[in-house]
Design a protein around this nucleic acid. Structure first.
Lengths: 194, 194
DNA sequence: GTCTATACTGGGATAGAC
DNA sequence: GTCTATCCCAGTATAGAC
């Protein structure tokens, strides 16, 4: 009971601090201070700092993957747009995308089941396609979505602010158009907006 | 003279160790042991560990960007393929792509001049295109190349080895096809190989 | 079973001797 | 310019209180 309270306090504080300041800047001593628990409690409940981060990431990933049926839409919607500052969970996942700390990197490369399920659905939907092409297209679609989140600042700089990162639906349209082009060979022209 | 020798020894050892074992695993003490110089020499010559990493990355980036006229080809060729183990420089740059350590991340988002030059050339070549579309296409092209290097292992796992990461020319063809689709709205179908 | 205080190890940085 | 000694702070381990 009390154990649960400590565990939860650590998780809540850690997620918030990592979301706000990034992985590189937040120490375990910062976390336990914010959670108002003892330093050793982290190792007692989670084993190590990396396992705490892994647990945070896995918990959020399960939530994300459950809503991931459109693959890239939910992620982009959660991570971009003017109200992206709202959710601590979303900001934590943005950090996880950008900073790619070792424990999270490991999980990402190991856990591919949900992607395999997605690929299987695509293969059923497109029986004429070379399976390798489908995997490549899926890989490219994920790359587009992920790097768009990751490199928003670079895109803003390179375009001198011309590209509108707040138009989330427009970005999703672009990503989906290019991903579809990769998949089906259909034209990828973006419907230009007024 | 002797100063130069020390500096060079540090740089050489650091690049090799980072390339072999990644940023997370290599300490300054490892580097000075390999370079056979004193621990304090790193701080004296480079200021800090992060600045040493930054210097390594900038040096390699200048070399890469100079040959970057085709934007993604040289990078992919350097980072993929069966002989990718050959060059320490290439392996260092792969590490830099995958692990995205803070000093390198900062440089990447700040230094966009070479991309601006590339975008300017594209705008001259495609005067009818919306400039924002061109920036987006460039952003997507970089995303495809970068994540393809970054997530090779995930792609291999997800496709159960079906996607051939050793066929570098085939990969470049795929990336270019999709990037072109993003840019011109032309079909992106991949020429399937025998 | 939970939690605390505290000690340990190893990392990067720095002051000052040479 | 170089080296030694030392400092500070990080994550971790442990002994023992409750």
């Amino acid at each position: 009971m009390a154990a649960d309270r400590t565990r939860t306090a650590i998780i809540t504080a850690a997620e918030r601090l990592y979301a706000e300041r990034g992985f590189a800047d937040v120490t375990m001593r910062d976390i336990v201070a914010a959670a108002d628990v003892n330093l050793a409690a982290v190792n007692y409940h989670f084993g190590s700092k990396d396992e705490l981060i892994a647990e945070l990431f896995v918990t959020r990933s399960i939530a994300t993957n459950r809503e991931r049926r459109a693959l890239v839409g939910p992620t982009l919607r959660g991570c971009l747009g003017p109200d992206r500052e709202g959710s601590t969970a979303a900001r934590f996942m943005i950090r996880a995308s950008i900073e790619s700390v070792p424990p999270i990197r490991k999980i990402k490369t190991r856990e591919v089941d949900h992607l395999k399920r997605f690929a299987a659905a695509l293969r059923r939907a497109l029986p004429d396609h070379d399976p390798a092409d489908i995997f490549w297209a899926l890989h490219f679609a994920l790359a587009l979505a992920h790097q768009t989140i990751r490199d928003t600042e670079r895109l803003t700089r390179m375009s001198d602010g011309l590209c509108d990162l707040d138009d989330v639906q427009g970005i999703i349209d672009r990503v989906v158009a290019v991903a579809l082009a990769a998949l089906t060979g259909k034209p990828a022209r973006i419907k230009t907006r007024a």
